[in-house]
Structure formats: structure tokens, C-alpha cells
């Protein structure tokens, strides 16, 4: 079950935990765009990639996300990574000319190596960002944020409230159902079903002996839950008030500006085709990074003062 706990919400009280989930989702999208923008030269790719990596490293540090968990996610993707490496290295890029080394008659190009590194870096940054979001935000808050973003869909009669309710109930029952899986597995094991060994066909049978009771139990659960919700006056069509209020604070504005600036900068770089040789690019980059650091520092200091009583 440990793979499921990867990226699970960890209750803490950090700056990032306190941000509005709507802002966090939007920032995630902005930063993802920044991660996926391409540049014409390798140096640019790795400089911007490095800056983003540093920024995400900072985010992980601030939100108290464990680095072990982040790297574990990399381990979980090992198959994908090896596959990407192989495909990229074996297939010769169109205009590749910079041979790194050869194995027999097969030439391995630097370009292909860079290409694979770039993809892995992007994947890692993307997964890390998502994990920072999910470990620092309650699933329920994410649901409320999604509901908020879906609001315009109400005009085309899209059942946004029902969808949000469904997601939040699903989230609520994940641990309960996992317990159930464990319980059924134990029960079936004691009847001689073997989940870990044996031929494919017998393992398949073992899985069936897990799935069928799980489904039956889940349906019964769903029915009881529906009865209970109805008895407590739930009526999706009727008007309801909401207990949760999403609050947009000054900090959220600052966080949003920062992530927006990142995305804007990367777009400007690629559209204007910046390289390190562009006049004044390096000084501007240094000044930009310095500004971001000062900004973060100021934000940190301001918040430390506010929350330390």
C-alpha cells in the first residue's frame, strides 16, 4: 500500500499549506507551462530547467515535503525512464552530429543524451510539483477548488455540485476500501487462496476472489451511505449552504504573481529566441533570480512575523 501513500496529504502549517487551493492549482498549471516550454539551444534549456528545479526545490523545502518521497516517485517511474532513454539513444535525431561515443557501429549522440535528460528532468519536475500540491493541500480543499473552477459549466447544466460531492466521497472512502481489500485478502488467504505465487491463471483466479466480494461489499456500502445521506436531509437538487469558504489572501496574490512571472518570463525567452549570447541576457537573468529570492525572503519574513505569536 506504500505506493498509494506517495503524495498523500501531510498536515502541516506552512506558508504553502495555507495558500488558497484555487491559487495552488492555477500556479501548478502556470509552472507546468514554464517547465514544458522549449528553447532553441541546449544551454538555455538547462539554465531555465535548473532555475525551475531550484525553485521547485525551494517550494518542497518550504512546504516540508520529504525529498525522499520525491525521489521515490522517480523510482516508481524507472520503467518509463529506461524506456525513454533507450528509445532516445537508439534513434538518431535528424540533425545530430555530435558523437559522444560509439558501441560497435552504433553511434550515440550527445543530442540524444541531452534529449533524454531533458525529458527526465521535465517529468521529475512535473511529478514533484504535483506531489508538493497534494501533500500540502487537503483532498477536500482540492475538490472545492475544482468545483469553483467548474462553476461556469453550470450554465450548460453540468452537475458541478454532484461531481464535487462524488469526488469528495470517493476520497473519503479510499482508506475504508483499502482496509476492506486487506480484510478480504486475509479471509481468502486463510481459505487457501495465494495472491503472491503461482501461475498467471491461478493468480488471476485469486484476483477474482478479491474483486467479486469487494464489489458486492462496495455496492452495499453505497446503498447504506445513500440512505444515511438522504435521512440527513441531503438533496442534491435543493439549495444548500456550504461550510467551507475558500479565502483569497494577499499571500495568494503574491504567490500567483510569482508563478505567473515565471511562466511569462519563459514565454518571453522562447518567443524572442533568447540565448546566453543575447546581449545583457546573463545580467538580466541574475537580476531576475535575485529579485525572486528577495521576494521569497520578504514573503517568508512577513509571514513568520504574522504567525509567530
Amino acid at each position: 500500500m506504500s505506493s498509494i501513500t506517495l503524495g498523500r496529504y501531510v498536515p502541516r502549517d506552512t506558508f504553502i499549506h495555507r495558500l488558497d487551493p484555487r491559487v495552488k492549482i492555477l500556479s501548478l498549471i502556470l509552472l507546468m507551462v514554464a517547465i514544458f516550454i522549449s528553447y532553441s539551444t541546449w544551454e538555455m534549456t538547462f539554465i531555465i530547467g535548473g532555475i525551475l528545479a531550484l525553485f521547485i526545490f525551494l517550494l518542497a523545502l518550504i512546504s516540508n515535503t520529504s525529498f525522499k518521497a520525491l525521489f521515490k516517485s522517480l523510482r516508481a517511474m524507472w520503467f518509463l525512464i529506461i524506456f525513454l532513454l533507450l528509445v532516445n539513444v537508439l534513434v538518431k535525431p535528424k540533425d545530430a552530429q555530435w558523437v559522444a561515443f560509439s558501441i560497435g557501429s552504433l553511434n550515440i549522440y550527445w543530442e540524444s543524451i541531452f534529449q533524454s535528460l531533458k525529458i527526465i528532468l521535465r517529468l521529475f519536475l512535473m511529478v514533484s510539483l504535483t506531489m508538493i500540491l497534494t501533500t500540502s493541500t487537503k483532498p477536500l480543499d482540492l475538490t472545492y477548488a475544482l468545483e469553483w473552477y467548474m462553476k461556469p459549466l453550470k450554465f450548460i447544466k453540468f452537475p458541478t455540485h454532484e461531481v464535487a460531492m462524488t469526488i469528495s466521497i470517493a476520497l473519503r472512502f479510499i482508506p475504508t476500501l483499502l482496509n476492506e481489500v486487506e480484510r478480504i485478502m486475509k479471509a481468502q488467504t486463510s481459505r487457501g487462496v495465494d495472491f503472491k505465487h503461482g501461475r498467471i491463471s491461478s493468480r488471476f483466479k485469486a484476483i477474482i476472489s478479491l474483486i467479486v466480494p469487494l464489489f458486492i461489499a462496495s455496492f452495499q456500502r453505497a446503498e447504506e451511505l445513500a440512505d444515511s445521506m438522504e435521512a440527513r436531509g441531503y438533496n442534491p437538487k435543493a439549495k444548500r449552504t456550504t461550510y467551507h469558504k475558500l479565502r483569497f489572501s494577499v499571500n495568494d496574490l503574491f504567490a500567483f504573481i510569482l508563478c505567473g512571472a515565471f511562466m511569462a518570463a519563459t514565454i518571453v525567452f522562447t518567443v524572442m529566441d533568447f540565448t546566453i549570447k543575447t546581449p545583457l541576457f546573463v545580467p538580466w537573468l541574475v537580476i531576475g533570480c535575485f529579485c525572486v529570492l528577495v521576494y521569497l525572503f520578504g514573503l517568508g519574513a512577513a509571514n513568520a512575523r504574522r504567525y509567530k505569536k
Binding site: K138, P139, L140, S168, I169, L171, R172, T176, R221, E224, L225, S228, M229, R232, G233, Y234, N235, A238, K239, R240, T241, T242, Y243, K245
Partner: peptide, 24 residues
Amino acid sequence: DNQFVGATVRDDLAFGLENRCIKR
């Protein structure tokens, strides 16, 4: 388990109040 709707005790108690349109 099958009558616990909210993510936490607080949310579960709020669920009934929301249905009753109690002010936040």
C-alpha cells in the same frame, strides 16, 4: 463507516447543517 460522509468529524457534522441551509 457507512454513515460518515465528511472527510473529518467537523466536515461530517457540517454536512447535516449544510443540508439544512444553516448559515455558515
